[in-house]
């Protein structure tokens, strides 16, 4: 497996958690989310429209986030997404699982100690 492919799969598997984490901080619209994700990860995470928007709509359908059109500047409306209480619970559960996973990965795949 190439590193790019591995990274793409990791990102795909964690897109929902990344979106929920960013939206927990503040309500955001699609373009803003893409920018914030890149900024918050120092350019590591770059998400495409084809991944972001289907994920936003899937999360909305599952009741984890909620999207509402709002005027963010005079004459400029954007669909702002916020995390629902159900989304907050899901995020907390994912964070806990992620913590356990990262610890276990560190133990198994981390550098060998002598």
């Amino acid at each position: 497996m190439t590193l790019t492919r591995y990274l793409t799969q990791l990102l795909k598997g964690n897109t929902d958690v990344l979106i929920l984490s960013l939206l927990e901080r503040e309500a955001m619209y699609g373009h803003q989310l893409m920018d914030e994700l890149e900024l918050a990860s120092s350019g590591f995470f770059k998400i495409s429209e084809g991944t972001l928007y289907p994920a936003l709509h899937r999360l909305t359908r599952n009741g984890l986030i909620c999207g509402k059109w709002a005027e963010i500047a005079p004459g400029k409306e954007r669909k702002l997404y916020t995390v629902t209480p159900k989304g907050e619970q899901e995020l907390a559960a994912c964070r806990s699982t992620w913590g356990d996973f990262a610890t276990a990965m560190g133990l198994v795949a981390g550098p060998a100690t002598t």
């Binding site: 495409s48 429209e49 084809g50 928007y53 289907p54 994920a55 709509h57 899937r58 359908r61």
Partner: peptide, 19 residues
Amino acid sequence: GRMGRPQTLAHLMRRAHLV
């Protein structure tokens, strides 16, 4: 151009709404 083919994006959006 960055958004990819409309068919592909439509398919992905449609999948998100199919359930």
